[in-house]
Amino acid sequence: MGKLTARAIVERALEIGDTEGLDAVTIRRLATDLGVTPMALYWHFKNKEQLLSGMADHLIADFAPKPADDKAWNERLRDLAEGLIRTLRTHPCARNVLEQVDQTSVPNFLAVWDQALGLCREAGFSVQESCLITKYVLQSAIAIADAPVRFAGVHTPEEISEITRQKRLGLQSLPIEKYPHLVDMAGPLVEGMDSGLYDTFGVDLVLSGIEALAARR
Protein backbone atom coordinates (compact mmCIF):
# COMPACT_ATOMS: atom_id res chain seq x y z
CA MET A 1 0.00 0.00 0.00
CA GLY A 2 1.03 3.64 -0.34
CA LYS A 3 2.16 5.93 2.43
CA LEU A 4 0.12 5.39 5.59
CA THR A 5 -1.91 8.47 6.52
CA ALA A 6 -3.76 9.45 9.68
CA ARG A 7 -6.95 9.58 7.61
CA ALA A 8 -6.56 5.97 6.50
CA ILE A 9 -6.01 4.91 10.11
CA VAL A 10 -9.07 6.64 11.56
CA GLU A 11 -11.29 5.54 8.68
CA ARG A 12 -10.38 1.91 9.30
CA ALA A 13 -10.77 2.41 13.04
CA LEU A 14 -14.28 3.77 12.49
CA GLU A 15 -15.15 0.81 10.27
CA ILE A 16 -14.10 -1.58 13.03
CA GLY A 17 -15.91 0.48 15.68
CA ASP A 18 -19.11 0.51 13.63
CA THR A 19 -19.15 -3.24 13.03
CA GLU A 20 -17.48 -4.68 16.13
CA GLY A 21 -17.51 -1.99 18.81
CA LEU A 22 -14.75 0.24 20.13
CA ASP A 23 -13.18 -2.48 22.26
CA ALA A 24 -12.11 -4.14 19.01
CA VAL A 25 -10.23 -1.00 17.94
CA THR A 26 -6.61 -1.59 18.96
CA ILE A 27 -3.28 -0.51 17.54
CA ARG A 28 -2.33 -4.13 16.88
CA ARG A 29 -5.63 -4.85 15.06
CA LEU A 30 -5.30 -1.71 12.95
CA ALA A 31 -1.69 -2.49 12.06
CA THR A 32 -2.70 -5.98 10.92
CA ASP A 33 -5.63 -4.69 8.85
CA LEU A 34 -3.53 -1.96 7.26
CA GLY A 35 -0.56 -4.22 6.61
CA VAL A 36 1.96 -2.23 8.66
CA THR A 37 3.81 -2.57 11.95
CA PRO A 38 2.34 -1.08 15.13
CA MET A 39 5.20 1.44 15.16
CA ALA A 40 3.91 2.89 11.88
CA LEU A 41 0.65 3.77 13.63
CA TYR A 42 2.41 5.23 16.67
CA TRP A 43 3.98 7.76 14.31
CA HIS A 44 0.49 9.27 13.90
CA PHE A 45 -1.18 8.35 17.21
CA LYS A 46 0.92 7.72 20.32
CA ASN A 47 -1.89 5.91 22.15
CA LYS A 48 -5.55 4.95 21.91
CA GLU A 49 -6.62 8.22 23.52
CA GLN A 50 -5.09 10.16 20.62
CA LEU A 51 -6.57 7.69 18.16
CA LEU A 52 -10.06 8.22 19.60
CA SER A 53 -9.61 11.99 19.35
CA GLY A 54 -8.61 11.53 15.72
CA MET A 55 -11.68 9.39 15.12
CA ALA A 56 -13.91 12.01 16.73
CA ASP A 57 -12.38 14.78 14.65
CA HIS A 58 -12.91 12.77 11.47
CA LEU A 59 -16.53 12.07 12.43
CA ILE A 60 -17.33 15.78 12.41
CA ALA A 61 -14.96 16.78 9.60
CA ASP A 62 -17.67 16.47 6.94
CA PHE A 63 -19.96 18.76 8.91
CA ALA A 64 -18.93 22.34 8.29
CA PRO A 65 -21.02 24.80 10.31
CA LYS A 66 -22.41 27.43 7.99
CA PRO A 67 -21.06 30.96 8.42
CA ALA A 68 -23.35 33.72 9.65
CA ASP A 69 -26.09 34.56 7.14
CA ASP A 70 -29.43 36.33 7.09
CA LYS A 71 -31.16 33.64 9.14
CA ALA A 72 -32.20 34.36 12.73
CA TRP A 73 -30.02 32.95 15.51
CA ASN A 74 -32.54 30.23 16.39
CA GLU A 75 -32.74 29.00 12.78
CA ARG A 76 -28.95 28.81 12.59
CA LEU A 77 -28.80 26.95 15.91
CA ARG A 78 -31.38 24.50 14.56
CA ASP A 79 -29.35 24.04 11.36
CA LEU A 80 -26.28 23.36 13.48
CA ALA A 81 -28.03 20.74 15.65
CA GLU A 82 -29.70 18.99 12.71
CA GLY A 83 -26.49 19.02 10.66
CA LEU A 84 -24.55 17.47 13.51
CA ILE A 85 -27.20 14.77 13.93
CA ARG A 86 -27.08 13.85 10.23
CA THR A 87 -23.29 13.72 10.27
CA LEU A 88 -22.96 11.57 13.40
CA ARG A 89 -25.67 9.15 12.28
CA THR A 90 -23.44 7.86 9.49
CA HIS A 91 -21.42 5.96 12.12
CA PRO A 92 -23.05 3.68 14.74
CA CYS A 93 -20.04 4.11 17.03
CA ALA A 94 -20.16 7.93 16.95
CA ARG A 95 -21.68 8.43 20.38
CA ASN A 96 -19.29 6.02 22.08
CA VAL A 97 -16.34 7.74 20.44
CA LEU A 98 -17.43 11.21 21.55
CA GLU A 99 -18.21 10.01 25.06
CA GLN A 100 -14.73 8.52 25.47
CA VAL A 101 -12.71 11.54 24.37
CA ASP A 102 -11.94 14.92 25.83
CA GLN A 103 -14.11 16.91 23.44
CA THR A 104 -11.92 19.98 23.95
CA SER A 105 -9.14 18.07 22.16
CA VAL A 106 -11.22 17.68 18.99
CA PRO A 107 -10.74 20.70 16.67
CA ASN A 108 -13.82 20.12 14.52
CA PHE A 109 -16.02 19.69 17.59
CA LEU A 110 -14.61 22.93 19.00
CA ALA A 111 -15.59 24.73 15.79
CA VAL A 112 -19.19 23.56 16.18
CA TRP A 113 -19.22 24.45 19.87
CA ASP A 114 -17.75 27.90 19.24
CA GLN A 115 -20.43 28.73 16.70
CA ALA A 116 -23.17 27.54 19.06
CA LEU A 117 -21.79 29.76 21.82
CA GLY A 118 -21.82 32.76 19.48
CA LEU A 119 -25.44 32.13 18.53
CA CYS A 120 -26.48 31.96 22.19
CA ARG A 121 -24.74 35.24 22.94
CA GLU A 122 -26.46 36.76 19.91
CA ALA A 123 -29.78 35.64 21.40
CA GLY A 124 -29.04 37.64 24.54
CA PHE A 125 -28.02 34.90 26.93
CA SER A 126 -25.30 35.48 29.49
CA VAL A 127 -21.91 33.79 29.30
CA GLN A 128 -22.86 31.17 31.89
CA GLU A 129 -26.26 30.55 30.27
CA SER A 130 -24.63 30.21 26.85
CA CYS A 131 -22.19 27.63 28.21
CA LEU A 132 -25.02 25.56 29.68
CA ILE A 133 -27.27 25.86 26.64
CA THR A 134 -24.60 24.76 24.20
CA LYS A 135 -23.73 21.76 26.35
CA TYR A 136 -27.40 20.72 26.40
CA VAL A 137 -27.82 21.27 22.65
CA LEU A 138 -24.68 19.40 21.61
CA GLN A 139 -25.23 16.49 23.98
CA SER A 140 -28.87 16.25 22.88
CA ALA A 141 -27.77 16.15 19.24
CA ILE A 142 -25.33 13.34 20.02
CA ALA A 143 -28.04 11.38 21.86
CA ILE A 144 -30.64 11.91 19.10
CA ALA A 145 -28.17 10.79 16.43
CA ASP A 146 -27.33 7.64 18.38
CA ALA A 147 -30.78 6.31 19.17
CA PRO A 148 -31.84 4.76 15.82
CA VAL A 149 -28.46 3.05 15.40
CA ARG A 150 -27.99 2.00 19.00
CA PHE A 151 -27.62 -1.71 18.26
CA ALA A 152 -26.26 -1.42 14.72
CA GLY A 153 -22.87 -2.95 14.07
CA VAL A 154 -22.68 -5.10 17.19
CA HIS A 155 -25.85 -7.14 16.50
CA THR A 156 -27.33 -8.79 13.43
CA PRO A 157 -30.80 -7.68 12.25
CA GLU A 158 -32.20 -10.89 13.68
CA GLU A 159 -30.59 -10.23 17.06
CA ILE A 160 -31.87 -6.65 17.07
CA SER A 161 -35.37 -7.91 16.29
CA GLU A 162 -35.19 -10.38 19.19
CA ILE A 163 -33.81 -7.78 21.62
CA THR A 164 -36.63 -5.42 20.66
CA ARG A 165 -39.24 -8.16 21.01
CA GLN A 166 -38.02 -9.09 24.49
CA LYS A 167 -38.04 -5.45 25.61
CA ARG A 168 -41.56 -4.94 24.27
CA LEU A 169 -42.83 -8.10 25.95
CA GLY A 170 -41.13 -7.05 29.18
CA LEU A 171 -43.06 -3.78 29.27
CA GLN A 172 -46.32 -5.38 28.17
CA SER A 173 -46.08 -7.91 30.98
CA LEU A 174 -45.93 -5.22 33.67
CA PRO A 175 -48.98 -4.93 35.98
CA ILE A 176 -51.35 -2.80 33.91
CA GLU A 177 -53.06 -1.37 37.00
CA LYS A 178 -49.71 0.03 38.16
CA TYR A 179 -48.14 0.99 34.81
CA PRO A 180 -51.08 1.52 32.40
CA HIS A 181 -49.26 3.89 30.05
CA LEU A 182 -46.06 1.87 29.81
CA VAL A 183 -48.07 -1.21 28.90
CA ASP A 184 -50.19 0.70 26.38
CA MET A 185 -47.24 2.37 24.65
CA ALA A 186 -44.75 -0.50 24.86
CA GLY A 187 -44.56 -0.85 21.08
CA PRO A 188 -43.43 2.65 20.09
CA LEU A 189 -41.30 2.95 23.22
CA VAL A 190 -39.00 0.09 22.25
CA GLU A 191 -39.60 -0.37 18.52
CA GLY A 192 -38.96 3.25 17.67
CA MET A 193 -40.84 5.47 15.25
CA ASP A 194 -40.40 7.36 12.02
CA SER A 195 -36.87 8.79 12.04
CA GLY A 196 -38.05 12.08 10.55
CA LEU A 197 -40.49 12.62 13.41
CA TYR A 198 -37.92 11.41 15.95
CA ASP A 199 -35.31 13.92 14.77
CA THR A 200 -37.50 16.96 14.21
CA PHE A 201 -39.46 16.49 17.41
CA GLY A 202 -36.27 15.99 19.41
CA VAL A 203 -34.71 19.18 18.05
CA ASP A 204 -38.02 21.04 18.45
CA LEU A 205 -38.18 19.96 22.08
CA VAL A 206 -34.74 21.37 22.84
CA LEU A 207 -34.94 24.50 20.70
CA SER A 208 -38.42 25.53 21.80
CA GLY A 209 -37.24 25.78 25.40
CA ILE A 210 -34.25 27.91 24.39
CA GLU A 211 -36.45 30.15 22.23
CA ALA A 212 -38.95 30.60 25.08
CA LEU A 213 -36.15 31.64 27.44
CA ALA A 214 -34.76 34.06 24.86
CA ALA A 215 -38.20 35.63 24.38
CA ARG A 216 -38.28 36.53 28.08
CA ARG A 217 -35.03 38.51 27.82
Score class of each variant (00 low, 15 high):
residue 80 L to A: 09
residue 80 L to N: 08
residue 81 A to D: 00
residue 84 L to T: 04
residue 86 R to Q: 08
residue 87 T to H: 10
residue 87 T to E: 06
residue 87 T to M: 06
residue 88 L to N: 10
residue 88 L to D: 02
residue 93 C to A: 15
residue 93 C to E: 01
residue 94 A to G: 02
residue 95 R to Y: 06
residue 99 E to N: 14
residue 99 E to Y: 11
residue 100 Q to G: 13
residue 101 V to C: 08
residue 102 D to Y: 08
residue 102 D to E: 12
residue 103 Q to F: 02
residue 103 Q to D: 11
residue 104 T to K: 11
residue 104 T to P: 08
residue 105 S to M: 11
residue 105 S to E: 01
residue 107 P to D: 06
residue 108 N to F: 03
residue 110 L to E: 01
residue 113 W to F: 11
residue 113 W to I: 02
residue 113 W to G: 09
residue 115 Q to V: 07
residue 116 A to Y: 06
residue 116 A to E: 02
residue 123 A to E: 03
residue 123 A to Y: 05
residue 124 G to Q: 13
residue 124 G to N: 04
residue 125 F to V: 01
residue 128 Q to M: 09
residue 130 S to Q: 06
residue 132 L to Y: 11
residue 132 L to I: 15
residue 132 L to D: 00
residue 133 I to A: 09
residue 133 I to Y: 04
residue 134 T to P: 07
residue 134 T to M: 06
residue 136 Y to M: 09
residue 136 Y to G: 13
residue 136 Y to F: 15
residue 137 V to C: 13
residue 138 L to I: 05
residue 140 S to L: 06
residue 141 A to V: 07
residue 142 I to A: 10
residue 143 A to G: 15
residue 151 F to L: 15
residue 153 G to Q: 06
residue 153 G to P: 01
residue 155 H to M: 13
residue 157 P to M: 13
residue 158 E to D: 13
residue 160 I to A: 15
residue 160 I to S: 14
residue 161 S to W: 00
residue 163 I to E: 00
residue 164 T to R: 11
residue 165 R to E: 10
residue 167 K to P: 00
residue 167 K to D: 05
residue 168 R to K: 15
